[in-house]
Amino acid sequence: MMCIMKIKKFIWIFILLILWQITALSGKVSPLIFPSLGMILKAMVHAIIQGELLSQTLFSIAIIIEGLFIGAILAFVLAIVSRMSESLNSLVETLITLAHPLPGIALLPIIILWLGTGRASIVFIIVHSVLWPLLLNLITGFRATPKVYSDVGRNIGLNRLVLLKEIHIPASLPYLISGFKIAWARAWRALISAEMVFGAVGGKGGLGWYIFKQRVFMDTAGMFAALVVIMLIGILVEEVLFERVEVLTIRRWGMTEK
């Protein structure tokens, strides 16, 4: 079943690529708007050989991992805090209500004043965009833990902290994983847009900066090359990394609806 789905996806991608190429080669659109696949590939190879695209991709990924890590820790801490008492729970929920709808980019001018224009600011924006969806999913996951699990945990003598670690967290793993999926996607978006506003930091920039530079120097093929890289990374993480994690955990344990 899964396999057929994947093959279908590939067929569609292939068709879309062909349509792209037909449009590019039709001569009706300027290559500055619609570069051909060959031009994009050339731009990509060029950018990779120059070493720029690869190092900027790594730079982006490193920042995202850093932001995800900090965001995840904060989300766990806040989720635990919210379980400690009714009033702390309402405090955390208020925080979520206030902060979750705020796009990171809207915070940019303030962040620049607070933290300057360095790496810290970009990490801050990523943490902001990752923290709230993760926290929300964690709290929902904790709430959705069947009561019988925690009864069993209490019965065999687990204290509250161990109960959290050994029962609540594994029980909310499906929520946690989907939280991380959302967080990952949001982190990418936040990073790319932050970099397109900020530019490079200390001469080092990520993919967003790369796209921005290609834009101001009108290298459309180069821009698309970076977009392709972003898509490839997305596919790799979604279809390979998260897929593996799910197969090894919640699917193995029968914790998915499917």
């Binding site: 069947p146 699990y149 009864d151 019965n155 065999i156 029968g254």
Partner: peptide, 17 residues
């Protein structure tokens, strides 16, 4: 306490992981 153990009707009282 572990000295008196409750066994439930629910089938999902085992930890699925």
């Amino acid at each position: 306490t572990p000295d008196s153990i409750l066994v439930f009707q629910e089938f999902n009282q085992l930890l699925p992981w």
